[in-house]
Simulated assay, not measured.
Amino acid sequence: MTTTHTTTGATTTGATTTAARTTARTRVASLARAELTLLVRNKAALTYALLLPGSLTLSMTTFTGDIDLDKAGLDLPTLVLPGSIGLALVLAVYMNLVGVYVVRREELVLKRLRAGELTDPEILAGAALPALLMGLVQCVLMVAAVGPALDAPMPKAPLLAVLGVVAGLALMATLAAATAAFTKTAESAQLTPMPVMLVSMMASGLFVPLDIMPDRVAAVCEWAPLTPVIDLVRAGWTGGMGAGEALKALATAAAWTALAGWTVRRRFPWEPRR
């Protein structure tokens, strides 16, 4: 009798846990579908997120002609291709998602969602999923378009590139929520992401390799939020990263993500800021 009772209790507990997880996934998926519908309807934001990374990549390709790539141990494809992926992460995920969080908060959408069954992490995750999906699609498009255009070689360590993209998606989404915590209005959402965007473009090795910078400047830039992501993605094509370096890059990206997540938990306002 005791054995039968224990087994039945365990089965019931397992079924309850599975049902709870399924319900959570369903709630997040429903919110994500609603956000995706709004994103598709917003032609300006969709065009901006999809076309701007490619346009900037094209313009930056001409700029890289003056860089001594041999000193950095790179060539044009291994410089530009990871840089284009980094741009997709910043523009399609980070910049876009800051506006989503702020606008939904100003419209009291987040406040109403909190009154239902959705938990705070589920609300943030559901709102972020369309931007994350768009960022992932954009990364794939960059590889498919920029790679053949520059005659890029096949990745030597594709797992590192995948890890870099996954880490970048998580980092950009969390940084977006943290930035939204300090953004008062939808209008200011166009300005508050600029520091992270500029630091990412100038100090993360997107199109200016850290190896050609002065040693002290490069040492500081190594700790920029997007630098470990770009290092991992670039190492995916060059294969020039050992296990220790890969773990250090992942740990740095995880530390920035954790810091941004802590900021969100402590500072994110769910009602309009006055």
Rank of each mutant, 00 (worst) to 15 (best):
A29Y: 07
D68L: 01
A72R: 12
V98A: 10
D151K: 14
Y101S: 08
V165D: 07
L50D: 08
C139V: 08
G73W: 10
V143W: 10
D75N: 09
L39T: 11
A127D: 00
L81N: 04
T23Y: 09
A145V: 15
L141N: 09
L159T: 13
V90W: 08
G83M: 02
A49Q: 12
V140C: 12
K111R: 15
A115Y: 07
R105F: 03
D120W: 10
V109G: 10
L31R: 15
A145W: 08
P82A: 06
V146T: 14
G83F: 01
L133I: 13
L97H: 08
A29S: 11
T22E: 14
K43C: 03
V103Y: 05
A92F: 01
A32T: 02
P153A: 10
G147L: 01
L50P: 06
P130E: 02
A115Q: 13
T57A: 12
L81I: 06
S59W: 15
M60N: 12
V28A: 05
L108T: 14
T64S: 10
M154N: 12
T47H: 07
P158C: 05
L87R: 02
A32V: 08
D68Y: 06
V93Q: 11
G99L: 09
R41Y: 04
M142T: 14
G126V: 01
E117T: 15
L58H: 09
T119S: 11
A161S: 07
Y94Q: 14
L118G: 03
A49S: 15
G73H: 02
L56H: 06
L110C: 06
G86V: 03
G135R: 03
P158Q: 03
L56D: 05
L159F: 07
A29N: 10
G168H: 02
L76M: 03
L133Q: 12
L113P: 02
G116D: 07
A92H: 11
V80D: 08
V137W: 04
P53T: 12
G86S: 05
D68E: 02
L133V: 15
L39R: 14
E117K: 13
K43F: 00
T37R: 15
M134D: 04
I85G: 08
M142A: 15
G83Q: 02
N42F: 03
R41P: 11
A152H: 09
L159D: 12
N42L: 05
L150M: 04
L81M: 09
S84V: 01
L38D: 10
L74F: 06
L79M: 05
A88W: 03
N96G: 14
L46R: 10
L74V: 00
P82E: 03
A34S: 11
L46E: 04
A149M: 05
G73V: 01
N96Q: 13
M60I: 09
V102N: 00
P148M: 15
L163D: 00
L81G: 07
P155N: 04
L39E: 08
V137G: 11
V40T: 09
R27H: 02
G54W: 02
A128C: 00
D151T: 13
P77D: 01
L76W: 01
K156T: 14
G126D: 00
R105Q: 00
S59L: 15
D70H: 15
S55L: 15
A157F: 04
P130G: 04
L76G: 00
